[in-house]
């Protein structure tokens, strides 16, 4: 079971080479197959995740949640998806048509690109990049442009305000996000995510880097624009923020991309802090799924427990609390590494 998918990939490459393809083209086709599999998994997974979030939120608010379509309402999301697909596609006449239409595509492409470097199991990743962690952070920073495009292209006051808020928030929280991961990089001595997983052979980084874990969790919640930091959407004040003018499938693409980002960030968190695919008895690809779902449930829990925070509090929290704390964590980690070497423990 452990080597199920890696063996399948090797067998597929071997089969393509026997068909007369050169090894380079076999690799290219294998890469395409990996991408198709990832996009399929993302799409199917989101149907489950949306149902799960609705059930979890109902549990927190002492409601039943979706319960009419199928057992426990599991077909509700499918019905919603069909509804969204068949809805009329409205483009506001005052909108900048090109930017309005490109923004959701750009957003989802950037979100899917995050999966390039995440190790889904032992030897299972799209590309084993030696700067994987940095690639993940830099790709994540691109989603601000998509939101800005959506907000500006809609030509709507609420949209623009939501976009400006979300960009200010995401740029501010990117700094503690990157700094909190530096402690892990200092201990493992590598930006390669497979190396970071291998460095957690004995002890998970959540135990060695508890401050970094908390900082990363808070900053990631803000990066994902999820509650209690969901200022950019803020249905009650901004009528939906940057997504106000979007309908049907274009709106669904934004929704899809947000959940895609959520899964990617949770998977990164499981990889960097919770030992990645390592674990006893079960195969490695099952472990990463279990850990990712665990982190996602914590994100749900936080969202449906805390009320929304005011915008100025949000910004000052990032600059006055999270940035100094994450910088202090880097100092502490460096001192710890030197102390450890001085004592001769490592």
């Amino acid at each position: 079971m452990e080597h199920l998918f890696t063996n399948l990939a090797t067998a597929l490459t071997g089969w393509m080479i026997t068909l007369g393809l050169s090894p380079v083209w076999a690799d290219v086709i294998l890469l395409l197959v990996k991408w198709i599999i990832i996009i399929t998994i993302i799409t199917l997974n989101i149907i489950i995740l949306i149902w799960l979030e609705r059930k979890v939120s109902a549990f927190f608010q002492e409601r039943l949640g979706p319960n009419r379509l199928g057992p426990f309402g599991i077909f509700q999301t499918i019905a919603d998806a069909i509804k969204l697909l068949t809805k009329e596609d409205i483009v506001p006449s005052a909108a900048d048509k090109l930017i309005f239409k490109t923004a959701p595509m750009f957003f989802i492409v950037v979100a899917v690109m995050l999966y390039t470097v995440i190790p889904m199991g032992q030897g299972m990743e799209v590309i084993n990049l030696n700067i994987g962690l940095l690639f993940f952070i830099s790709m994540g920073s691109l989603s601000t442009i998509a939101l800005l495009m959506a907000g500006w292209g809609s030509d709507n006051k609420w949209s623009l305000m939501g976009a400006v808020r979300s960009v200010a928030q995401m740029i501010s929280y990117e700094i503690p996000l990157a700094f909190s991961l530096l402690g892990v990089v200092m201990i493992s001595g590598s930006l390669n995510l497979q190396d970071i997983v291998a460095a957690q052979d004995n002890i998970w980084f959540v135990i060695l880097q508890p401050i970094a874990f908390l900082t990363y969790f808070i900053a990631a919640t803000a990066e994902l624009n999820r509650g209690p930091f969901d200022m950019p959407e803020a249905e009650q004040e901004l009528t939906g923020g940057a997504y106000t003018e979007y309908t049907g499938m274009r709106w669904a693409l934004f929704f899809l991309a947000e959940y895609t980002n959520l899964v990617a960030v949770s998977a990164l968190m499981a990889t960097v802090f919770l030992g990645g695919w390592q674990g006893p008895w079960l195969p490695s690809w099952l472990w990463i799924i279990i850990k990712t779902y665990g982190v996602i449930l914590v994100f749900f829990w936080v969202k449906w427990t805390f009320p929304r925070i005011r915008m100025d509090h949000l910004m000052s929290f990032s600059w006055k609390v999270l940035v100094p704390v994450s910088l202090g964590n880097i100092l502490l980690t460096g001192a710890g590494i030197y102390f450890c070497q001085w004592m001769g423990w490592c």
Binding site: S138, S141, I145
Partner: peptide, 20 residues
């Protein structure tokens, strides 16, 4: 790769947003 990732992070992700 390092230079490429920094190029995306700083120029495409931050400076362009600043310009916009």
């Amino acid at each position: 790769g390092f230079l490429g990732a920094i190029q995306i992070l700083v120029y495409a992700g931050a400076i362009s947003v600043l310009i916009i």
